[in-house]
């Protein structure tokens, strides 16, 4: 069987001021085709002002199976949240 075109993940900035957001993926022979395929697939109704495409096999992802261990360092640091601190009601602007 002939080789499949590589898969690219597509990220779209819907308007300036917002960050790029994952939209889906496309197959393409090269980077340039990935951009035009992404445009034709995901922005037929002006859904974007900017597109990023990146080869899916270049993405490094955390493992969901390990997620509790991986995110464990944040588990016990409630003092990072403002509500951890008791401030008397009389004190304003804090």
């Amino acid at each position: 069987m002939k080789q499949e075109w590589p898969l690219y993940e597509v990220f779209i900035r819907s308007r300036s001021g917002l960050s790029h957001r994952h939209a889906g993926s496309v197959h393409a022979a090269d980077d340039e085709m990935a951009l035009t395929n992404a445009r034709d697939t995901y922005t037929r109704r002006k859904e974007g002002v900017s597109i990023w495409v990146v080869r899916s096999d270049k993405i490094v992802a955390s493992d969901p199976e390990e997620s509790s261990a991986f995110f464990e360092p944040a588990e016990d640091k409630i003092y990072r949240h403002p509500t951890f601190y008791e401030i008397p009601d009389e004190v304003e602007n804090l």
């Binding site: 002939k2 080789q3 075109w5 022979a29 090269d30 085709m33």
Partner: peptide, 12 residues
């Protein structure tokens, strides 16, 4: 599809 793939490989 095959031509596009081979062309992309050559370019790379």
């Amino acid at each position: 599809r095959e031509a596009a793939r081979v062309y992309a490989e050559k370019k790379a």
